[in-house]
Every structure is written in structure tokens, then in C-alpha cells.
Nucleic acid binder design. Structure first.
Lengths: 198, 198
DNA sequence: TCCATTTTATGACTTTAATCATAAAACAGC
DNA sequence: GCTGTTTTATGATTAAAGTCATAAAATGGA
């Protein structure tokens, strides 16, 4: 969301991450601003018994991990490359300097944080209701609006695995599979050779 | 978090709300920036069968409802006065003008949004684990850090009702009551004539 | 001070997602 | 093309929070 040229002007460097490589870890202090050039990144937590919760998935041109950067707090989650990804890293001080010298960027950051807060609010309310069908459908509809789902003749292709949907909604895979089938039976989405369309 | 004098300079007006009075409603478009002078405000959703989910509780000097204001989106939740409250209202355009002319305020807003996003991330991960004891304890510990809980000889007094804890964590009252008792038995908190201390 | 409402509390029962087991289909790397 | 891994799938069982019923204690107005 910040022009790559501007980031580079302030000293941002490109770094590549292999599939499943860790970009930063929960508990560490932030040192950089991160913006994706290509690929896909997830932020997630692992609880005591190894179960994953995905906070969010980010794609090209998106940034991630800013909140702790602004607050001088430890990262509340890990950032992991889902695919091979190229990311621009700008050291914290340079980033703050960039913001200071380019006030219009502040508004961009505000809008971005506002957007993410909005998503979390909607999902939090949805997740508290406990009904799997609600949770899954809300996630899918949010994904259509904000992730890069593509539309074809069958509708929007939801390119998440059942496992990812589970990790994003706090449900188990089996429950997601059954829920998706139930939603299909109700005509709320389509399953065409295992792929989900809405 | 923005100096009241500055808000008034840009035309903010004080408005009073009675206990349980609605400040704005889910589905409406934002028109103002809101900042609390005194009292207590909650933002919450009601699902189909009337069950409440509290997104957050705000106290004096705090602002609320900004994300949709920046995004031109409908409010995802209601704002309701928990007690009689006095609130400064600044019309949207004046607020944006204030921001534009006072760049240092932008950083304040960013920090505030970052803080709220941080809370939502932590709670989202916690709520997905499904374990009531985890959820309740995390909420309480967050409250100690960010709500105005007061410390006395017994520890921090958690001045939430069991119902409020339930509405904030997505648990039923009975479950909260039983969970709190279980946490007391484990020595993780104290119950002194029905009040919870940590 | 009295009364209505809210909050806390407890027990019995039910529902529902998690868990466990198992397997076929699809995909990815060599 | 073969093989190991991931993803989707289904059935049986279990555990745990929700639900329902009921009530005592506390609180707040009139």
C-alpha cells in the first residue's frame, strides 16, 4: 500500500522467503515494517496443544505486523510465508521517518488499520455465536470482499483449504467439511469437484 | 486522547447520554468522531436470537467508532452508554480537517487503532481455543492492563459482572460462574463476597 | 423501608462440535 | 509414472458447554 519506490528511497530491502519459512516470531520485538511484493503470508498462533489459529492472510501490496511496531510490544503471533514470497523490509526508524515526512501516508496506515479492525470486529461477533455455518459463511463473504478471490462462471472461487477455513474460524477440519456440505445443501454455496464456490 | 480544547476549537459539542441510551446503531453510516468526557460506553452486537456480544468497553478520554468513519462503512455494532455519560461529538468533516492540520494527532490515532487491533488479535486467538478458563483469564488480564481496574489489598478488583464477562468472551453466564469458581479453586483468582480479584 | 430487578448460584439434562479411526482422491516432487 | 504427503471425506463416540429450571443474595429506586 506504500509505493515500493518510496520504501526503497528510505532504505527498504527486498528479502525472499521460502514456502513455510518464518518471517518473524511471536514474542519477539518488531524491528521492521513489512510489505509484500509477491507471494502470500499468514499470521498465526499456536496454542499449547499445537493447534493453529490464523489471524489473517496477506497478499501482494499488503503490509502486516504494524500494530506491535507502533506500540513497542512483542508480536502476538508468528508471520509465516504460505508460498515463496518476496517482501520489502524497512527498518523501524526509517519507517517512522518516512511517516513523519509524508503525512499522507499516515492516513493510508490509518485506513489500513481501520480495515483490519473492522474485519476483526465482524469475525469476533460471528465467532462468539458459535454456529459453524454462520462463521464459515461470514469468513467466505469477507474473503470475497477483501482477499483476492476470483470470479468465474460458477461464482467466486474460495481458494482456502478446509483446514485453513478451520484455522481462521476456530473450527476443526471435520466440522468445516460437514458445515460446507450443509451450506451447499441449503443452496448457499456450490461444491464443484471439491472446490468451493459462492 | 485528543485534547478536549482542540476538539472544541474544531466545533465539537458535548452531548449527554442516559444509562442504556443508544449512541449510534449498527448499520448506520458514521457522522461524527466520539470521545468520552465521563461515563462508560460499550460497543456490542446482538445476534438473531438476541444474544449480546460486547466488542469493547470504553471509559473517559477514550474514543470509539472510528474505523467505519475512516472507511465510509456502516457501523458493525451498536454503541450504548453503560452509565450516564458525557461525550464530545465532532462532525466527520471537521474531524478530518483537524487531522489534516495536526499531523501529530494522526500518530495518536494510529497508536490507538494499533492498540485495539492488538487486543482483538489476542482475544481472537484465545476465543478460538474454546477453553473457558483461558478465555476468562485472558480477558481479566487484559482488563487489568487496559481497563480501569483498581488495585487494593486483595489484588485487582475485576469490576465486570459475570454476564459482561460472558458477553465479552462469548460464554454463557452459568459457564462464566462455574469457570470463575474453577479458577478460584486453582488459586488463579480470588472471590471475596462475590467480587472477583486477581 | 419495601419491592422489583439484577446478579450470582446450582443441579439436571441436552445438544453439538470435538475427537478418534479410517480411507479415498488429489497433488507435488523426484 | 511412481510415491509420499496433503486434502477431502464419513461414521461412531465422547466430552463439554449450553440450556432449562429454580432460587437466594444483592442492589437500586420509589
Amino acid at each position: 500500500m506504500i509505493a515500493p519506490e518510496l520504501l526503497e528511497k528510505y532504505g527498504a530491502l527486498k528479502k525472499s522467503f521460502d514456502k513455510n519459512e518464518i518471517i518473524f516470531e511471536e514474542g519477539n520485538l518488531p524491528t521492521h515494517y513489512y510489505q509484500i511484493l509477491s507471494g502470500e503470508v499468514k499470521m498465526s498462533n499456536y496454542n499449547d496443544d499445537g493447534r493453529e489459529f490464523i489471524q489473517g492472510i496477506f497478499y501482494k501490496e499488503q503490509s502486516f505486523g504494524e500494530p506491535p511496531l507502533f506500540l513497542n510490544q512483542k508480536y502476538p503471533a508468528n508471520a509465516i510465508a504460505v508460498d515463496y514470497s518476496e517482501i520489502l523490509l524497512l527498518p523501524k526508524n526509517n519507517f517512522l521517518k518516512l511517516l513523519e515526512e509524508n503525512p499522507v501516508i499516515s492516513l493510508k496506515i490509518i485506513e489500513n488499520l481501520a480495515q483490519r479492525l473492522y474485519y476483526k470486529s465482524v469475525m469476533a461477533a460471528e465467532m462468539s455465536t458459535q454456529e459453524p455455518e454462520h462463521r464459515v459463511l461470514k469468513l467466505i463473504d469477507h474473503g470475497i470482499a477483501y482477499f483476492n478471490f476470483k470470479k468465474d462462471s460458477n461464482g467466486y472461487l474460495i481458494n482456502f483449504t478446509r483446514q485453513q477455513i478451520g484455522d481462521l474460524t476456530g473450527l476443526r477440519v471435520e466440522t468445516v467439511i460437514r458445515t460446507i456440505k450443509a451450506l451447499e445443501k441449503k443452496g448457499l454455496l456450490k461444491i464443484i469437484n471439491r472446490k468451493v464456490y459462492r
